[in-house]
């Protein structure tokens, strides 16, 4: 794996200080790996390999185990995301109401693969498990904003809203 960057010194030191403070506040960091990873993702936006190595040394578990946990849970991401994360709900209620077509339309219009970053670095499109707003199916979220009863025609408007903001 030649493209694995394990150089801890490349990590942003000011962000690491925040993470250190959080880990120091834990009673039992060794058993709280998932909480630490949540915090790391919140601070850094994603959890690259060098950060995983840093965490493994900090909380005292092997880097292999940290990587095993990061790759196991869909909530954690090892890749950088676009400025706006567009999530299409793929719960059953949304699925039967056409969420699959909405996802395809989004990928087509943004000319991007699922989970990758668009060329203008503005967007990453993901599918997510049920967010529980089944009454509004199909549902798309961009950051905190929720769009309900989404149709293919609405996709363009949604994208443009965020393109304009840059």
């Amino acid at each position: 794996m030649s493209n694995v960057n394990l150089n801890i010194s490349e990590l942003d030191q000011s962000l690491l200080v925040k993470l250190d403070q959080y880990i120091a506040s834990l009673e039992d960091p060794n058993n709280s790996l998932i909480n630490v990873l949540h915090k790391a993702q919140q601070i850094f936006g994603y959890i690259p390999h060098n950060l995983q190595l840093y965490i493994s040394r900090k909380v005292g578990v092997s880097a292999a185990r940290v990587n095993g946990v990061v790759s196991f849970y869909s909530y954690f991401t090892e890749k950088k995301t676009g400025k706006n994360v567009v999530s299409v709900c793929m719960g059953t209620a949304c699925y039967v109401k056409g969420a699959g077509d909405i996802l395809k339309e989004l990928l087509k219009q943004l000319n991007v693969e699922k989970n990758d970053v668009s060329e203008d670095t503005l967007f990453t499109v993901k599918d997510v498990r049920c967010i529980g707003a089944c009454g509004l199916a199909p549902v798309v979220t961009v950051g905190e904003k929720v769009y309900g009863h989404v149709t293919k025609d609405m996709v363009k408007d949604i994208i443009n809203t965020y393109k304009e903001r840059g």
């Binding site: 060794n30 998932i34 909480n35 578990v61 196991f72 849970y73 869909s74 909530y75 498990r129």
Partner: peptide
């Protein structure tokens, strides 16, 4: 409170307990 991280199998109680100790679920 302990947070999950997006794994359906963690609803199974033994997997849930593993996940709570910071392991794969």
């Amino acid at each position: 409170i302990r947070l999950g991280a997006g794994a359906f199998v963690c609803g199974e109680e033994t997997a849930l307990i593993n996940s709570m100790t910071g392991l794969r679920g």
